[in-house]
Design a protein around this nucleic acid. Structure first.
Length: 760
DNA sequence: CGCCTTACTTAGTAACGTGGGC
DNA sequence: GCCCACGTTACTAAGTAAGGCG
């Protein structure tokens, strides 16, 4: 399995790209025809001639197709030596028979039967030989709601297009990260209003944003939200069905005889551009994309899908097997090309993912050489060599991104290593004096995430084991000398210069490989550390998972993967703090009670106040709300039902709080025994809650998902699960298991090191 | 060669849906 | 069995890097 993954991997991507586009598409085309013939029996059920486009979608022929396919692939598979890998991927649950599966399950079953890492590769330089799909699914045309915004207090008639734009603005949360931030709100409003005015035309009465009142539309949208909340189960099912229908139609592609999932098959709908950070273009109107703007890419032999928007047609057609994309179009905000591509669990993505990790693993064998190289050059007489060496240290040790140049008129002002400016470094941030070797790095990185860390270059962390911290510090001082705050620290260093140097050291090495390498290496080392600790074997699976998450957190911190703390989270944490205090107070009360009982004074001890009443009241309200929901026909009734529901929930919450507040008490005067038992109970509860709060607090600003999804070699996690008897589902969600299907078969002693690079 | 285009990976957040505590 | 906090998924913005072109 993973071991035989052979030499394949880096082949298709790198070297052979050139002969690609034009010439090879012709060559590939002729080859394609040959292949088509060979495998035609294979495709027979899938290609009922004209309707082939919908072959992945339409109801009847499809059912035959998928089940036939399943059987075939299954048989083919059982002959190849590994039935084992299959079972755990089947959700852990007892395998369903084909008859019991719904359509989506059947398709996914069929897809799982294809193991690309055991299959032949497409011709060198090509990603596929045959590819067919249904194109993108377009959002529905805008339906006007007729709710009028106010201008200068007066309702204004708007055309549907104008109304749509106004509605995009009204849909923005006034307290959200764009309008709720006093720094970004003016940018957003300025951009939006400029585009809105352009739609309205010169002579429209709307001229001043301050006189605009979008509140009526905003209220309407909120009302719609409430109505949607009150839908019946039946309606909910219908929505799901129609969603599934478009998934069946557009969500799958046929690539070289097997089904693959498409990632983003829904065309991005129009709206207000939600750029992050202080993006200079936020608020601009993102236009609706017409089919004519879309280019689709499929094989020449594939049927061209009919465009699903009435009266429209695809803009252009391509047959380029050297690329992965199925559709592309231009977006009007930054004039960038966007793509529809296969999903993360597809073979295309799986192949490049595996090759990414193999490349990072290859770095294990070269890292000493590389560190020695930049150590030497840190003192080089050539300024360029010195800058390259210092940048490499930064990228290696601080895990910064390479940092390409950005045009701040067009994009947010964010930086990485090469684009660091003098103003982002603060020497001796704590004013500790001359021989202090601290620098505070403060800047906005990708997605405008704050990087703020004080690096003590003289500390053991950066000086021991060839850490070179002191020399790096001297270099930084040198690079910043006589420069303006706004000057680049690495004056003439660019990502291409840096990457050219890296390529000279190790084939395929680029700056971003260091992040993958360090993330995976860190995970592996952290996991190993805990496994070696005394008593490890006695831990439960859940406790082991906590340790895994701790290791994961180390990686996330290394990569500076953050998330903002939501209001809800903040209040939740606060309320937990309140609860903890209550528990502590209750414990005090219990101790006092015990003391008095010991003294034989049991008069006036607090007892439980009647709480059943409150509970009953809440339950009644809840029942009524349910009833209203079921009866509701009109919008007004639906809104009333939702309101009632919310009221009832508030009552229930209140009752719960009352219950919690006197949970330490008894109906009658308790015995000494009862009290002391409860005291020890409470001690335990308090400890548990303190742990819980600490854990939540530690995690609230760290995002574990990104590193798990993009940086940590999944084979490390799979092997860890296997040797520690932790079910893989505890670590990887369903989609992650699908994405990492190629990694599931590694043995329990698999290691992230240079030897795996040789294997492929 | 430096800049622009192309193609793909990485990223946080909003919306969604579900599993496990009451 | 219910419900909601929480994890998962969808969405699309924002990066990197290679290659082409003038």
């Amino acid at each position: 399995m993973a071991d035989d993954s052979s030499s394949d991997d880096d082949l298709p991507l790198g070297q052979l790209k050139k002969p690609a586009a034009v010439s090879s598409s012709a060559a590939a085309a002729s080859k394609k025809r040959a292949i088509k013939e060979e495998s035609s029996d294979d495709d027979a059920p899938i290609k009922p001639k004209k309707k082939a486009k919908t072959s992945n979608g339409k109801a009847k022929p499809d059912k035959v197709t998928s089940s036939a396919k399943v059987k075939k692939e299954k048989n083919g598979k059982s002959s190849d030596k590994k039935p084992a890998a299959k079972k755990p991927t089947n959700n852990g649950k007892a395998a369903k028979s084909l008859k019991q599966m719904d359509k989506a399950e059947k398709i996914s079953h069929a897809m799982q039967a294809y193991l690309w890492w055991n299959a032949d590769n497409p011709p060198a330089g090509c990603q596929w030989v045959k590819m067919e799909h249904a194109g993108v699914s377009f959002p529905e045309a805008y339906t006007p709601h007729g709710v009028k915004m106010l201008y200068d207090g007066q309702p204004v008639d708007l055309t549907p297009i104008e109304e749509e734009a106004a509605t995009f603005f009204a849909a923005m949360d006034p307290d959200g990260m764009h309008l709720g931030n006093p720094k970004t709100a003016p940018i957003f409003i300025k951009n939006f209003f400029a585009d809105f005015r352009a739609i309205l035309g010169k002579y429209h009465i709307i001229k001043d944003f301050k006189k605009c009142d979008f509140e009526p539309i905003r209220r309407y949208l909120n009302e719609q939200k409430i109505i949607r909340k009150a839908i019946t189960d039946e309606e909910r099912k219908m929505n799901k069905d129609s969603k599934n229908e478009t998934m069946f139609k557009f969500g799958y592609s046929l690539v070289d005889g097997h089904i693959e999932k498409v990632g983003n098959y829904n065309m991005e709908p129009p709206g207000a551009f939600r750029g992050r950070g202080e993006h200079p273009k936020m608020g601009k109107l993102k236009q609706r994309v017409e089919p004519e703007q879309v280019m689709i890419n499929l094989s020449e032999c594939a049927p061209v899908p009919r465009c699903s928007v009435p009266g429209h047609a695809w803009g252009d057609l391509r047959h380029d097997p050297t690329v992965q994309w199925l559709c592309q179009w231009k977006e009007n905000i930054n004039n960038q090309v966007k793509y529809m591509q296969l999903a993360a669990q597809s073979s295309f993505k799986g192949k490049s993912d595996r090759s990414k990790y193999n490349k990072a693993a290859k770095l294990c064998g070269n890292i000493d050489k590389i560190r020695a190289d930049y150590k030497k050059n840190l003192k080089s007489k050539s300024m360029e060599a010195r800058q390259i060496a210092t940048a490499m240290w930064v990228i290696d040790r601080l895990a910064l991104r390479v940092g390409g140049e950005k045009d701040t008129d067009e994009e947010a002002d964010t930086v990485g290593c090469c684009s660091l400016r003098v103003e982002h470094l603060k020497f001796d941030p704590n004013g500790e004096g001359a021989d202090n070797k601290e620098i505070e790095l403060e800047f906005l990185g990708k997605d405008s995430m704050l990087f703020k860390q004080t690096i003590d270059f003289g500390s053991a962390l950066y000086t021991e084991n060839h850490g070179m911290g002191e020399q790096v510090y001297e270099n930084f001082k040198l690079f910043c000398k006589k420069k303006k705050q706004s000057d680049d620290v690495f004056s003439d260093l660019t990502p291409s210069v840096l990457n050219a140097h890296l390529k000279g050291i190790m084939e395929g090495l680029t700056a971003k490989v260091f992040r993958t390498y360090n993330a995976s290496k860190t995970l592996q080392e952290e996991l190993l550390k805990t496994e070696k600790a005394a008593g490890w074997a006695r831990l439960t699976a859940a406790e082991k998972v906590t340790e895994y998450n701790n290791a994961n957190r180390e990686v996330a911190i290394l990569c500076n993967h953050q998330r903002s703390v939501s209001k809800a989270q903040e209040t939740q944490l606060e309320s937990l703090g309140g609860k903890l205090q209550t528990l502590k107070d209750q414990k005090k009360t219990l101790k006092k009670m015990l003391k008095r009982l010991n003294e034989g004074n049991d008069k006036g001890l607090p007892t439980k106040k009647d709480e059943a009443k409150a509970v009953e009241k809440a339950n009644k309200a809840l029942e009524k709300a349910k009833e209203m929901k079921e009866k509701a026909k009109t919008n007004e009734e639906k809104i009333a039902a939702t309101e009632m529901d919310e009221k009832a929930k508030a009552l229930k919450k209140e009752a719960g709080e009352l219950k919690f507040n006197q949970a330490h008490l008894w109906e009658k005067v308790p015995s000494k025994d009862q009290v002391s038992k409860k005291i020890s109970n409470w001690t335990e509860k308090i400890a548990k809650m303190e742990m819980n709060i600490k854990h939540k607090d530690d995690n609230k600003e760290v995002s574990l998902g990104t590193s798990k999804l993009n940086y940590m070699d999944p084979r490390i996690s799979v092997a860890w699960c296997k040797r520690n008897e932790v079910p893989i589902e505890k670590i990887f969600s369903k989609t992650m298991r699908d994405k990492f299907n190629w990694a599931m078969a590694v043995p329990s002693d698999w290691e992230f090191n240079e030897s795996i690079a040789k294997q492929g």
